[in-house]
């Protein structure tokens, strides 16, 4: 992890106005992404995890510049792309690609697979001859584990897993350097999910891709990520190398998330700490004052309601936004 990072996100903010009332006046703002900063090194996989409303998808959309951030800075390969106008985003699209969650909604049902992939290839180089293009499409399909015959099919003739493979092939068609995958396996069955995860990892190793992988599933995140970032109500609350994170999370929310994953082992409850959080996730329209997690945190103290902790470096270079990170308390015998 030396040199300039491929992606640099600095104090990024994106609010959405909520309109309502009978004159359509502004009712409030969804604090979707609030002051989030991190770097992603070239060739690295960063896993982003969080529950609904935590801002992980908005963050993904900011990074691929489907939406424009309000504040902060977004750099790709050393270049500031935060407010680049839509017109001049095309060259960027060849470098950054998004893989969507729902393989049923993200492919045009009226087009054949060859047309879907062909359109993406044209974005890279429109001057390719017809024959070369067909060969390139076949090569793309093969790369994602589909037979060339799939070229003539339409999305509805494909299973969910096969569609997601086409979605991946489309992302690869332009030869990107960064892939942002937003819940790419959430809509798939377990046995198919494993295939797609393996495929993504193979492709990453083969093509030297950098990946930002977004999921609510900590099991999936562990399988693919080098580093893990946890988001809660628009804030990044913890960022750590994957192995350290899973061995000992520092933020109480991370700990609760890890404890909430149902483990496929009937005796798992004997060896792990059971944490059941109280209450619901507060509305991102009005995030709590102080630490945003303090309303549900089992260890909250007076300070937590009053002042918001900043993401700061702990021993070992890990980042956490908490006044009372866990490891410290652990050693005092809690």
């Amino acid at each position: 992890m030396s040199g300039t990072p491929l992606v640099r996100v600095a104090a990024l903010r994106k609010y959405f106005a909520v309109k309502g009332g009978w004159l359509g006046g502004r009712r409030g703002q969804v604090h979707a992404v609030d002051d989030v900063s991190f770097d992603v090194a070239s060739g690295e996989t960063l896993g982003l995890v969080g529950e609904s409303g935590c801002g992980k998808s908005t963050l993904a959309r900011c990074i691929v510049r489907l939406v424009e951030p309000d504040q902060g800075k977004l750099e790709f390969d050393g270049e500031d792309i935060t407010h680049r106008p839509t017109r001049s985003l095309r060259p960027l699209r060849r470098q950054i690609q998004l893989i969507f969650q729902d393989p049923f909604a993200s492919l045009n049902p009226r087009k054949r697979i060859s047309q879907i992939l062909g359109a993406a290839l044209d974005l890279r180089d429109a001057s390719v001859s017809r024959g070369d293009r067909q060969a390139e499409i076949a090569r793309l399909l093969e790369r994602v584990g589909l037979a060339p015959q799939f070229m003539d099919r339409r999305p509805r003739e494909l299973s969910g897993g096969q569609r997601q493979r086409v979605g991946i092939a489309r992302a690869l068609a332009v030869g990107p350097r960064l892939i942002v995958a937003d819940e790419p396996v959430s809509a798939l069955d377990v046995s198919v999910q494993a295939d797609i995860l393996n495929l993504l990892k193979d492709l990453q190793a083969e093509l030297g891709l950098t990946v930002i992988f977004i999921s609510h599933d900590l099991g999936v995140i562990r399988h693919v990520s080098d580093r893990v970032g946890v988001m809660y109500l628009g804030r990044l609350v913890e960022l750590a190398p994957a192995d350290q994170f899973y061995a000992a999370p520092l933020h109480p929310y991370s700990e609760a998330l890890l404890s909430a994953i149902p483990m496929p082992d009937p005796d798992a409850h004997l060896t792990r700490k059971e944490i059941v959080l109280e209450g619901d996730i507060p509305s991102p329209l009005a995030p709590p004052k102080g630490c945003r997690f303090h309303t549900r945190c089992p260890y909250a103290q007076a300070l937590c309601a009053g002042s918001e902790p900043k993401l700061s470096t702990q021993a070992g270079g890990r980042l956490v936004a908490c006044h009372f990170p866990l490891a410290k308390q652990e050693s005092t015998g809690r």
Binding site: V190, S191, V192, Q193, A194, D195, L197, N198, K201, D217, L218, G219, V220, R222, H223, V224, S225, A242, D243, Y246, L258, I261, M263, P264, D265
Partner: peptide
């Protein structure tokens, strides 16, 4: 199942 208790890096059996 890509479980959280599983060592990272290897291929998932599918």
């Amino acid at each position: 199942i890509p479980a959280a208790n599983r060592v990272r890096g290897e291929r998932l059996p599918s």
